[in-house]
Every structure is written in C-alpha cells, then in structure tokens.
C-alpha cells in the first residue's frame, strides 16, 4: 500500500482501537493486525506522534509485577476519527468506482 496513505490509516486504526477503552502496545497490534499490517517498530513512532499531537495520553500501570504503558484516547483524538470519516466515505466511493470498472 502507498506509504503515505498507510501512515494516515495506521494512525486512525490505532485511535479506533482506543476509542472504546484504553489499551497497551501488544493489544493494539493484535487488534489491528487483521485489518492492516503493523509491526512493533512501526507502532512506536505512531504512538509517539499521536501523543505529541494530543490525540492520546499515557499512563503506567502495574501488571503481573511489571510496568505496562496504557494509552487512552483524548477528546481531540475522537474528533480526529470523526473528521476522517468523511474522507473514509470518500475513499469508499472511490474504491467502489474503481471496483465497478472491473
């Protein structure tokens, strides 16, 4: 998939996986893997970026004797998803157009 397109989609997918409840690294990957290819090293900069742009916040919680970092979506993050839905609808129409040509 086109790199730029993928980058944008990955950020949205990560935000979507946080929309219902907070999550952590491993779980985020296993939640979006069925839909889009993502690796540990791809996820890291995405999380960093989303935090830097205020779309999510983090906290550390203890789990099984070790510290785990949890990510929570923010108001701004939810708005980001909402505003992208228009683009996604457009994408869907474009997809159907191209598909229909076959």
């Amino acid at each position: 998939m086109d790199v730029q397109l993928k980058k944008g989609l990955l950020e949205l997918c990560v935000l979507a996986s946080l929309n219902k409840e907070e999550s952590y690294g491993y779980k985020i990957i296993s939640d979006i893997s069925p839909y889009i290819e993502i690796s540990e090293s791809t996820l890291y900069p995405i999380l960093k970026r989303l935090e830097a742009t205020g779309c999510l916040t983090t906290r550390s919680k203890e789990y099984n004797g070790r510290l785990r970092k949890y990510y929570m979506i923010t108001r701004a993050g939810k708005d980001r998803i909402k505003s992208s839905l228009n683009d996604l609808d457009e994408l869907k129409r474009i997809y159907e157009f191209i598909r229909g040509a076959f």
Partner: peptide, 9 residues
Amino acid sequence: ADGGIFDGH
C-alpha cells in the same frame, strides 16, 4: 501533510 487524504484537514 503526510497522512495522505487524512491529514492537513
């Protein structure tokens, strides 16, 4: 703008 159609909105 680097998220393709999803950025720079």
